[in-house]
């Protein structure tokens, strides 16, 4: 499904944010990336859909290398990759259903995007997806009036509208309260189990990773230091993932 090989990235040409990162993600599995702040989790995730242009390596999505695509090929490949963000990144002045419908615009014409032209089937599907995440009654609410947990669920519905093969989640629960956290994680878990979608999640919380993940990847200082089934994630392994290297800046540990 997704295989990352020897990925490398430096933002400033000096300090390496990623050195030789390799791992793969299987369909129907929840894969969680854990590691201290500044380890490179966001950089990995954003390299997969090439929001960040990395320096070296291979990113095989459906056996095509995302790094070799031209602009329009990349745009088309992105339509099948969903993404969920810590800050939800919804268009706040628009309604929930309008935001969900954005998910299908990638495969439609520019004209459809400019005049918000959606077929009856698409609108029907958007409503069904909102129902699925428990927000059918909020379809016509402006997103700025929704709570954090509700916004994140709209974000998930929007990603599902893309008919994604994989969903990338960058700290999806970092801004949520415990109850919303469980709701959101349950939905993500269910997408993998019931629909066979690959779910790749950056997380801070080890206990959540243990509970929801099939597979865990530990990142420290831009390198993979753990890559195994969740059952192998012992306390010793966790300490190792979060250890502080001599060449790492201490201040990074206190970043949010």
């Amino acid at each position: 499904m997704l295989t990352v090989k020897h990925l490398a990235k430096s933002y400033d040409g000096e300090k390496k944010s990623l050195t030789d990162v390799s791992f793969s993600v299987r369909p129907g599995e929840v894969t969680v990336i854990i590691g201290p702040s500044g380890a490179g989790k966001t950089t990995i995730l954003r390299s997969i859909n090439q929001l960040i242009r990395d320096d070296d390596g291979e990113i095989l999505f459906d056996s095509t290398d995302m790094r070799q695509l031209n602009r329009s090929q990349l745009r088309r490949a992105r339509t099948r990759i969903g993404m969920i963000f810590q800050n939800y990144n919804l268009i706040e002045p628009l309604t929930a259903i309008e935001n969900v419908l954005h998910g299908c615009l990638g495969t439609k014409s520019n004209l459809a995007g400019m005049f918000s032209i959606y077929s009856a089937d698409e609108k029907q599907e958007a409503l069904k997806l909102l129902e699925k995440v428990g927000l059918r009654d909020f379809a016509y609410q402006q997103c700025r009036n929704l709570s954090g947990g509700q916004e994140q669920r709209v974000g998930i519905a929007r990603a599902l509208m893309q008919h994604p093969k994989i969903i990338l989640c960058d700290e999806p629960i970092a801004s949520l309260d415990p109850k919303s956290t469980i709701t959101v994680m349950d939905i993500l878990r269910n997408l993998a189990t019931a629909e066979g979608i690959s779910v790749l999640i950056n997380l801070h919380q080890v206990d959540i990773a243990r509970h929801y993940a099939d597979h865990v990847i530990g990142i420290n200082n831009g390198q993979v230091v753990f890559d195994d089934a969740t059952s192998a994630l012992t306390d010793v392994a966790v300490t190792n993932i979060y250890r502080k290297d001599a060449n790492q800046e201490g201040s990074l540990m206190y970043e949010l």
Binding site: R75, R78, T79, L94, L105, K108, G113, M114, Q162
Partner: peptide, 11 residues
């Protein structure tokens, strides 16, 4: 999500 520029501006 693979949106084109016109759609991004409008939406």
């Amino acid at each position: 999500m693979g949106l084109k520029k016109g759609a991004i501006i409008r939406q």
